[in-house]
Design a binder for these strands. Structure first.
Lengths: 120, 120
DNA sequence: TCTACATTTCAACAATGATTGAGATATTGC
DNA sequence: GCAATATCTCAATCATTGTTGAAATGTAGA
């Protein structure tokens, strides 16, 4: 369960043009992810700069990385994204929990495939 | 449909301890909303400061306000929140659109009661 | 091992954002 | 109109954050 501190860090991470583009590119790319250099080109920033932003996003628990040859491949941490949404919308369902709760759960299930845990 | 500029502004607005607390309090409060003074007490900041943050959140389209007597009542802009989530997750459903798309739509429908439009 | 490639670390600067207190505006009841 | 309440605007200060270039690290192939 995500706490306030984590949620603030995650939203702040997304509240930056280049980082939001990175996350969206990774969400779109799916579990296969993208190399740091590819992301730099796609987002339009230098290698140094993309590395800075990727580190921020990792600290916020929104992306994860794995090394593949000389490249580092980044991918979206779907559990982190799902937890963030759940945190924001917790207790949002006054009088209509029968609609909202299943929707949040369905979204979490969709975003978070088996084996993808919240801890990155 | 929310664009990148709006989404960055909205995430940046949520990426601040006091503002995130304000939004969560308003989400929890539901459509009735809360007065600025009540929010200041609940979040733990001065009146001057809560006013600054409320303005930021309004600019980001995440809250709306109405005057009631000498108080100004703020409430969550559920359409804005829903649009933000949809923006973040657009194209998130490689191979499984049958799961993800309905979940996003259901959440939007839950958050956005009839008559609550995105432009605030 | 040597060279090329991919990414990260580091230090410095510029830009942006949060907080505060004093004063201004708007609303209500006497 | 006057006093009290609620909120907002403004200017100044302080802290955080984004960007850049140079140098360091790690990896693959000749």
């Amino acid at each position: 369960m995500m706490d306030e501190r984590q949620a603030v860090a995650a939203f702040a991470a997304l509240g930056q043009e280049h980082r939001l583009r990175i996350v969206r590119a990774l969400v779109e790319a799916g579990p296969d992810g993208l190399a740091a250099g590819v992301l730099a080109g796609q987002v339009g920033v230098s290698g140094t700069n993309v590395s800075f932003h990727l580190k921020e996003l990792s600290r916020a628990g929104l992306i994860r990385s794995r090394r593949d040859g000389r490249s580092v491949i980044y991918s979206a941490a779907f559990a982190g994204l799902s937890g963030l949404i759940a945190f924001l919308l917790r207790d949002c369902c006054q009088g209509r929990p029968e609609v909202c709760t299943p929707a949040v759960d369905a979204l979490a299930a969709c975003l978070c495939p088996p084996g993808d845990t919240a801890d990155a």
